[in-house]
Design a protein around this nucleic acid. Structure first.
Lengths: 207, 207
DNA sequence: TTAAAATATGACCCACCAGTCACCAGTTGA
DNA sequence: TCAACTGGTGACTGGTGGGTCATATTTTAA
């Protein structure tokens, strides 16, 4: 084995441990929230000692923030990739609803972490809270820009794109965490319903 | 002063202190969540000693649960009173959207407490968590029953009343906690938008 | 084979917090 | 005026949890 392969195996192992820890932390945070979770439990679940966690993350907050950052980034990438082939605004919105619901159904723990710490303003330190809020609002901004374009094209009955973005986000989020959301037809029914209500509710009839 | 007035003054004072404590607790819990809040801070905000709180509530959990219970009960009463004069299902739904948004805009702390502890399943003890969930799902059941009736009357394009109830709830919740939601026209615009999208999106055109 | 470097580990430290209780101020009733 | 009582109080306690560090273990390099 050459030196480079050696190094890369070490790198891989380090990465793997990091992932193990993140995975365990995701489960615990999703169940108990930030304040309710303990590093002891995360270490237990990850099957590492507590000290090990501090070889990979400098604090509980950094561990949490990493989860949020990587979760949102991964969601964003998925969305961008999915929307790339779409031409019209309506196509894009439909695709967004599909991909967002699919993603969050598949990553419910990530969803819980991202969504409920947003609603709990002051349990994290200021700077971190700000970054979190910032990233989140950029996500909202993405939808509202999409809608804004549709408004300019005269496709929408309602023209407050910010408000529409929020409404759509609320509709999507309402469908996660339902019982039995793992079944495939359950899921596609949810997708169809949200699409149908939002588009029927917002688009001009004569369009 | 007669003995009864004496007693009643004492009673009133006791009630007043209870309210003071609940009010302070509501603010703190709304800001920091259940796990993130401390009784010391609640006592400080209420301007009482920590020991005093235990003369009125047996534990942190009971204090929190009282807030949730009384908050939901008060909301329920407001809704029932508002919907009483309405005849048709559509009238009732419109009224519900109005009154729910108005109520939560006016009681944002209550809203935060009720909504985000629902999304954080395991930070409270089992029995309490169950009661909370139960009460919450009865609220959802109320809307879904309303919609169910509309479905039977053939007024709805979409017939899964449970799902519609969730969507509506998501739309309503998405509008709370926006910036500038204290202004009156902001608020009525939110109400009109939600009404408009939901009804346009769900009702049959020929109805 | 062994010295050195890297890394995992959990006992330990300290700050913090829910809950308690001995004390005290104010009120009542005689 | 005083004794009994009621009710607020915050210092105290026991337990807990984030974060540390000396030690143990494994890996690397010679």
């Amino acid at each position: 084995m050459s030196a480079t392969t050696e190094l890369s195996r070490k790198e891989r192992e380090r990465l793997r441990r990091r992932e193990d820890i993140l995975e365990a932390a995701k489960k615990v945070f999703a169940e108990k929230g930030f304040s309710g979770s303990t590093l002891d439990e995360i270490a237990l679940r990850a099957e590492y000692g507590k000290g090990t966690i501090y070889n990979y993350f400098s604090s509980k907050e950094e561990l949490f923030l990493t989860l949020v950052r990587e979760g949102l980034q991964s969601f964003k990438n998925t969305v961008n990739q999915a929307l790339a082939p779409c031409e019209s605004v309506v196509d894009k919105l439909e695709k967004y609803i599909e991909v967002a619901l699919d993603y969050f159904y598949d990553h419910q723990n990530a969803f819980k972490i991202i969504s409920f710490e947003i609603h709990q303003p002051n349990s994290l330190s200021g700077v971190i809270q700000d970054e979190l809020r910032e990233t989140y609002s950029r996500e909202l901004y993405f939808i509202s820009q999409l809608i804004e374009q549709g408004v300019r094209e005269g496709r929408f009955r309602i023209t407050d794109s910010q408000r529409l973005a929020r409404v759509l986000q609320g509709m999507i989020h309402s469908q996660i965490c339902q019982s039995g959301c793992t079944q495939h037809d359950e899921r596609s029914e949810a997708i169809e319903t949200v699409k149908s209500i939002f588009l029927h509710g917002c688009l001009n009839r004569d369009a």
